[in-house]
Computed example of a mutant assay.
Amino acid sequence: MNSFNERQLVALVQEGLPYDTRFFQQLITPYLPKLKGYCVKVLGNQSDAEEAVQETIIKALTNLKGFKWLVSFKSWLFKIAHHECINKIRERRWDIIQYDDDYLDTLEAKLPDEDDIAILISTMLESLSFDDRNIMLLRYRTGLEFQEIADICEMKLSAIKMRHKRVIKFLTRQMDSDKSKVKPH
């Protein structure tokens, strides 16, 4: 199989659209694990996350013909995922209003077997606002740069860095507080 770089793959997919999409899978495959992980963490629900990833892929393919290199392909892809996650959250709110408390049970995230520190960090992240949690997930789960995160979240770079710094301080204080509560055996 030919090995193309990202720019070459984007160009090949753009040339072949709408009928020839064989290079699209090669373009999108490296991003799928982080994309799925990001959506699961933001939405806290595997089923909703899978739908968001599918919608992201469909929208990326549908809109790739007009993609310009103003941002990286990865950043563009995660911006689409970000908006899909927001749409899912809006749908949930509508469903909660329609179906009342019964629907809340299906929204509950299931934590896999993790060590105590991972559970603690995951719990602390859940206590953050959507924007702050999203910034942390985009930074550490997907490895995006601050400027890319600012583009995705449609915020100023300085605001992203300030929120990031504030969250790090908050999480550090929380961990220090939790450590002091634990007594050695």
Results as ranks from 00 to 15, higher is better:
residue 30 P to S: 07
residue 35 L to R: 00
residue 37 G to N: 10
residue 39 C to R: 02
residue 41 K to E: 13
residue 42 V to W: 01
residue 42 V to C: 06
residue 43 L to Y: 03
residue 43 L to I: 08
residue 45 N to F: 08
residue 46 Q to H: 12
residue 46 Q to D: 15
residue 46 Q to P: 00
residue 47 S to P: 00
residue 50 E to D: 15
residue 56 T to A: 03
residue 58 I to S: 12
residue 58 I to W: 10
residue 58 I to M: 14
residue 59 K to M: 09
residue 62 T to F: 09
residue 64 L to Y: 05
residue 64 L to C: 08
residue 64 L to Q: 06
residue 65 K to P: 04
residue 65 K to Y: 12
residue 66 G to E: 15
residue 67 F to P: 05
residue 68 K to R: 15
residue 69 W to L: 08
residue 70 L to S: 11
residue 70 L to Q: 11
residue 70 L to A: 09
residue 71 V to N: 06
residue 71 V to G: 04
residue 72 S to Q: 03
residue 73 F to T: 03
residue 74 K to R: 15
residue 75 S to I: 01
residue 77 L to I: 01
residue 77 L to D: 06
residue 79 K to E: 15
residue 80 I to E: 00
residue 81 A to T: 02
residue 81 A to Y: 08
residue 82 H to C: 09
residue 82 H to T: 07
residue 82 H to P: 07
residue 83 H to P: 00
residue 84 E to Y: 01
residue 84 E to G: 00
residue 85 C to G: 10
residue 85 C to Q: 04
residue 88 K to G: 04
residue 88 K to W: 02
residue 89 I to N: 09
residue 89 I to P: 00
residue 90 R to H: 13
residue 91 E to Y: 04
residue 91 E to S: 13
residue 91 E to P: 00
residue 92 R to V: 10
residue 92 R to G: 09
residue 92 R to F: 02
residue 93 R to D: 15
residue 93 R to N: 15
residue 94 W to K: 13
residue 94 W to H: 13
residue 95 D to A: 11
residue 95 D to I: 06
residue 95 D to P: 00
residue 97 I to V: 12
residue 97 I to Q: 14
residue 97 I to C: 06
residue 97 I to D: 12
residue 99 Y to H: 13
residue 100 D to N: 11
residue 100 D to V: 07
residue 101 D to T: 14
residue 102 D to A: 14
residue 102 D to M: 06
residue 102 D to P: 00
residue 103 Y to A: 07
residue 103 Y to P: 02
residue 104 L to Q: 08
residue 104 L to T: 03
residue 106 T to S: 14
residue 107 L to W: 02
residue 107 L to M: 13
residue 108 E to N: 11
residue 109 A to M: 14
residue 111 L to D: 12
residue 112 P to N: 08
residue 112 P to S: 10
residue 113 D to I: 10
residue 114 E to Y: 10
residue 114 E to D: 07
residue 116 D to E: 15
residue 116 D to M: 09
residue 118 A to Q: 15
residue 120 L to D: 14
residue 122 S to Q: 13
residue 124 M to Y: 11
residue 124 M to V: 13
residue 125 L to G: 08
residue 126 E to C: 11
residue 127 S to W: 04
residue 127 S to H: 08
residue 128 L to M: 14
residue 129 S to N: 05
residue 132 D to W: 00
residue 133 R to F: 08
residue 133 R to M: 13
residue 135 I to D: 03
residue 136 M to Q: 02
residue 137 L to I: 12
residue 138 L to E: 10
residue 141 R to H: 10
residue 143 G to I: 14
residue 143 G to F: 09
